[in-house]
Design a protein around this nucleic acid. Sequence first.
DNA 1: ATACTTATTGATAATGATTTTCATTACCGA
DNA 2: TCGGTAATGAAAATCATTATCAATAAGTAT
Lengths: 140, 140
Amino acid sequence: MSAEFWLTQLHENGYRITGARRAVVETVEKSTRALTPVEVYDMSRKRYRALGLVTVYRTLEKLEELHLIQRVHQPMGCQAFISAGQGHQHLLLCKNCGQVVFFEGDDLESLTKSIAKKTGYQIQDHWLQLFGMCANCRTN
Amino acid sequence: MSAEFWLTQLHENGYRITGARRAVVETVEKSTRALTPVEVYDMSRKRYRALGLVTVYRTLEKLEELHLIQRVHQPMGCQAFISAGQGHQHLLLCKNCGQVVFFEGDDLESLTKSIAKKTGYQIQDHWLQLFGMCANCRTN
DNA sequence: ATACTTATTGATAATGATTTTCATTACCGA
DNA sequence: TCGGTAATGAAAATCATTATCAATAAGTAT
């Protein structure tokens, strides 16, 4: 997963590759923590000074549509984005620095089966997110 | 868990019991789906006509602080509230009608242990939510 | 290369949600 | 019943997001 791949994806889906998009893509793709639109704006403007906040919103919208980024839900709100995991992955977030790690291998089969039986619901998706303290923040 | 209990909780924490709070509490406590502040406002005004939207925000803030309600995260946003589960409970939401059911009994011990080892994180909380279709919506 | 079509842009304005301010009201303990 | 003060609603202020629009530039056809 590189910024170039993201740009290719945009292009292949009929979107043009522009300086503004390049800047946003490079910022978001490189980040290891979830960023709000304004954070993306501030950081991307170091690469492309003329960038407008509106373009950030529009670009994030397209990246989300192409499943290149995903929304991250946190206690304080859910308006932050990070690159999407590949396949079935979940997030582990550091409560202190915001660092995000992906993981997979959750087995909720038996849980969802039993809940489905108990509630009569047909269970389709699940959201799982872990919160903790990363090694770095723990020692400092 | 009754509206009266919530009011008692408010009172015991030094907050006054007023007509406005009564209306908000009765609305939220009784709901089986997550409600946005504006929805709470509209519904509560049937009980207490003079209610202001600002008071709804302020009351929800206090109820959340006392852990009587919790924020519900959904794909479209996370500005909706529902009564808090008791103890360690998670949510199952109907994608169609919004109906919420609580469940418990998730065992993520082994998962978090292995993720902790792999990542070096000290895992503190987890956040699990299931989405599906309730029995009622499924048949209609 | 050059011209042309049209998606994309940034600025501005509009909208929507939430918070702050403040004078008035009404809880509730004494 | 009274009085101090928390709580209220209305209005204004703030903040985030979306819509509008004329100017620009990406990328295709020439």
